[in-house]
């Protein structure tokens, strides 16, 4: 029975109300069956491994918010290299993404901003292989343009009256900031613990906060809306970014190819260009 046949049957019976609900429900079931059939069509890759394999379908990448700009560039590259593919991104706090993967969100690749958040996923045996570190990221202070408060060190952030935002401790950038603060024996009371690095940065971009501790890459992507101030303690809290294909990936071949692109010389160039450090 084809999908179109069922649809015509439903329209023919629509006049008899009681039967129509039954037929409607049947059609609904059939329709959802049709859509699931077509969604399982996606991701068919011809057998044989290697980047020469013909890829198609959608590859869904869950990536840390800090990777947004560089991964979007790489996504466009990927679609150009493999016509017929489409890269769909879900950017967010690594912990949020990890939680959605462990509760069954359909994704092919996970790129986290810390080994800790990746561990949430690997602990549940959601990855077929070991995650690999593909870049590292250093913290930096983002201040208002031209740094009106003259912030030059982590210690300057503890000045009373200064509005500082940090990432929440549950997100990698927040955990890293806490490590750096602890390493320098500083006690910093922010005005807010933000849910991911981009919202911390936004608060400075909107001039609602005077400074935020974010990644170097975020300062770079914000352009002249913020000014970056490096601090030596950031060396104590460099985050490794692991990437891994996921076990229940709807499109494992494309997942593999995307990770290859990220780790290639070309991918590395895009990432270091955005301010990431080599692994």
């Amino acid at each position: 029975m084809t999908c179109s046949a069922l649809r015509t049957r439903r329209t023919r019976r629509i006049r008899r109300p009681l039967r129509a609900t039954g037929a409607g429900a049947a059609a609904l079931l059939a329709l959802s069956a049709c859509s699931s059939a077509s969604s399982s069509d996606r991701g068919t890759a011809s057998s044989g491994s290697g980047s020469s394999a013909k890829l198609s379908g959608t590859v869904t990448v869950f990536a840390a918010a800090s990777l947004q700009e560089s991964f979007e560039t790489l996504g466009r590259e990927f679609e150009k290299d493999h016509p017929g593919t489409k890269v769909v991104f879900n950017f967010g706090g690594s912990d949020t993404l990890a939680a959605s993967i462990t509760s069954g969100a359909p994704a092919d690749v996970f790129a986290a901003a810390s080994p800790g958040t990746m561990k949430i996923v690997t602990d549940q045996e959601n990855t077929p292989g070991r995650p690999v570190t593909f870049v590292r990221n250093e913290l930096e202070i983002a201040t208002l343009p031209s740094n009106p408060h003259g912030i030059s060190s982590l210690d300057d952030l503890t000045e009373p009256g200064l509005k500082v935002v940090l990432c929440d401790k549950s997100v990698p950038c927040g955990a890293a900031a806490q490590t750096a603060l602890k390493a320098s024996n500083l006690k910093l009371t922010p005005v807010s613990y933000e849910q991911d690095v981009k919202s911390a940065l936004t608060k400075v971009e909107l001039k609602e906060a005077d400074a935020a501790v974010v990644y170097k890459t975020d300062v770079k992507s914000a352009g002249d809306k913020v000014e970056g101030v490096g601090f030596p303690e950031s060396a104590e809290a460099v985050n490794d970014y692991p990437i891994a294909p996921l076990k229940n990936a709807p499109n494992p071949a494309a997942a593999k190819a995307f990770i290859e692109l990220v780790r290639s010389a070309e991918g590395r160039q895009v990432l270091t260009g955005a301010g990431f450090l080599k692994p």
């Binding site: 990890a98 939680a99 549950s170 005005v191 807010s192 933000e194």
Partner: peptide
């Protein structure tokens, strides 16, 4: 709330914010 008032325990962290952030870890 989280967009306008941010998230700080005791000052602006209401229950829904606490639930959301706790859900992460």
């Amino acid at each position: 709330t989280i967009t306008f008032a941010g998230n700080f325990p005791g000052r602006t962290q209401t229950m829904p914010l606490a639930v959301y952030l706790a859900l992460q870890n």
